[in-house]
């Protein structure tokens, strides 16, 4: 059975993240769009929902938790994965309770994130 192409959204105000994740995740044939701030990301999400959203937890203006909440409100079965960094593990745990699928801490290899996305996509199909 051929796996459907995933629509993945990556949100992180650090340029390095989107820049490196996009090609890495597109390798498996999925569609990836990257954003460097929550507003534009959510606006895009309003146009059409994504299967997977990968978002940094701590960003200015709109932070990862808010993105999580708004994404899930719009599309309950979207899988949201949080990227944590320095001192944000506690918030990540909170995110899990708010419905985030999992979290991954920087520094990480794109392959590790791919593994989480793979698991998430299994649940999407289930």
């Amino acid at each position: 059975m051929e796996a459907k192409k995933l629509k993945i959204m990556v949100i992180d105000d650090e340029n390095i993240v989107g820049k490196r994740l996009k090609p890495a995740l597109e390798k498996s044939g999925d569609i990836v769009e990257t954003f460097e701030n929550g507003e534009s990301a959510l606006a895009r999400f309003d146009e059409e929902p994504f299967d997977i959203v990968v978002t940094d937890i701590r960003m200015e203006k709109i932070d990862g938790i808010e993105i999580l909440e708004r994404v899930l409100a719009k599309s309950a079965h979207t899988k949201v994965i949080m990227i944590t960094g320095y001192a944000t593990v506690e918030i990540a745990r909170e995110a899990l309770s708010k419905g985030a699928f999992d979290f991954i801490a920087k520094p990480f290899k794109p392959a590790d994130l791919r593994a989480i996305i793979k698991r998430a996509s299994k649940e999407l199909r289930a």
Binding site: V89, E90, R93, E94, L96, S97
Partner: peptide, 18 residues
């Protein structure tokens, strides 16, 4: 990591999901 500082009574949903 997941169980650190867990206050079982405060947020039952959080506890459950962890």
């Amino acid at each position: 990591i997941l169980l650190k500082n867990l206050d079982v009574t405060v947020d039952k949903n959080q506890f459950k999901s962890r």
